[in-house]
């Protein structure tokens, strides 16, 4: 589907580089995206996709370049204070491959606690919002259970609700379905698709090629820490230009 996107820039990354020791995992990454856009990042394992995503909310501080995201500017040599970081992270929600729900809290507490601690909402107000969001992801009945009693797909949908509860401007998804059975992954993808249709700005690191092609507006294809191809999803996925990208897409599409 086509959206009115790109009117206002929400993310701009210039000259992004990241070292792990002597190993350079991101090298000269440049891209930008507008409010309401859905961007998929694909590529072989170890190409730096997840690291790139984790640099955006500074779970990994970058080594080179500048990141502008949701009104924050982060230069490699001028990291944000914890206070500014938390402000950025409030605006940029993240969903992880391993869900990372807090196992010692009920589902409801998982979604309400961050609202209370980060936004200063009262317990009743936070719970009301949490229940509305849990209903939205189809898990209203699970509110009083503990995460261990929920399936992987349910846990991931709860994690999405937890991130949404802070009213983020952008959602970052780090391989949200990679730890799930293909069938179970679909219920998570359905929630994400609904979010995208609702106009949420999203960056999705994924191995779900169908999702990348049909739900995202644009695709970044990465390999060896660099962006190999970038463009409208169907174009990148159907007509890759570089041999490396062709090889990757050949391998993942024809299975």
């Amino acid at each position: 589907m086509v959206r009115q996107a790109g009117a206002e820039t929400i993310v701009k990354v210039s000259g992004l580089g990241k070292f792990f020791g002597a190993h350079k995992v991101l090298d000269g990454v440049d891209f930008g995206m507008g409010v309401g856009e859905v961007l998929a990042i694909i590529g072989p394992s170890g190409s730096g996709k997840s690291t790139l995503l984790r640099c955006l909310n500074q779970l990994e501080p970058h080594s080179e370049g500048v990141i502008d995201i949701c009104g924050s500017r982060i230069a490699a040599d001028a990291p944000l204070s914890r206070r500014d970081l938390n402000e950025l992270r409030r605006r940029a929600g993240m969903v992880f491959q391993s869900f990372n729900l807090f196992p010692h809290m009920s589902v409801l507490r998982n979604v309400s606690l961050p609202q209370e601690r980060v936004l200063g909402r009262k317990r009743a107000e936070a719970d009301e919002r949490s229940r509305a969001l849990l209903d939205r992801v189809g898990l209203g009945a699970k509110a009083d259970q503990y995460p261990a009693r929920c399936s992987g797909g349910q846990q991931q949908r709860i994690a999405i609700a937890r991130a949404l509860a802070l009213d983020p401007k952008i959602m970052l998804f780090d391989e949200p379905t990679s730890a799930l059975d293909p069938e179970i992954g679909l219920e998570v993808l359905a929630v994400m698709q609904e979010l995208a249709e609702g106009g949420m700005t999203m960056i999705v690191v994924t191995h779900e090629m169908h999702f990348a092609e049909t739900v995202s507006d644009r695709v970044l294809l990465m390999a060896e820490g660099k962006i190999l191809e970038e463009g409208p999803s169907v174009e990148v996925m159907r007509n890759p230009k570089t041999p490396r990208a062709q090889r990757f897409l050949q391998a993942v599409m024809n299975r």
């Binding site: 909310n57 779970l59 970081l85 938390n86 402000e87 950025l88 992270r89 409030r90 929600g93 993240m94 992880f96 990372n100 729900l101 807090f102 961050p114 601690r117 980060v118 994690a159 937890r162 991130a163 802070l166």
Partner: peptide, 9 residues
């Protein structure tokens, strides 16, 4: 990761 990504103090 989750605690930090949520911006918890």
């Amino acid at each position: 990761d989750a605690a930090q990504a949520l911006g918890l103090p």
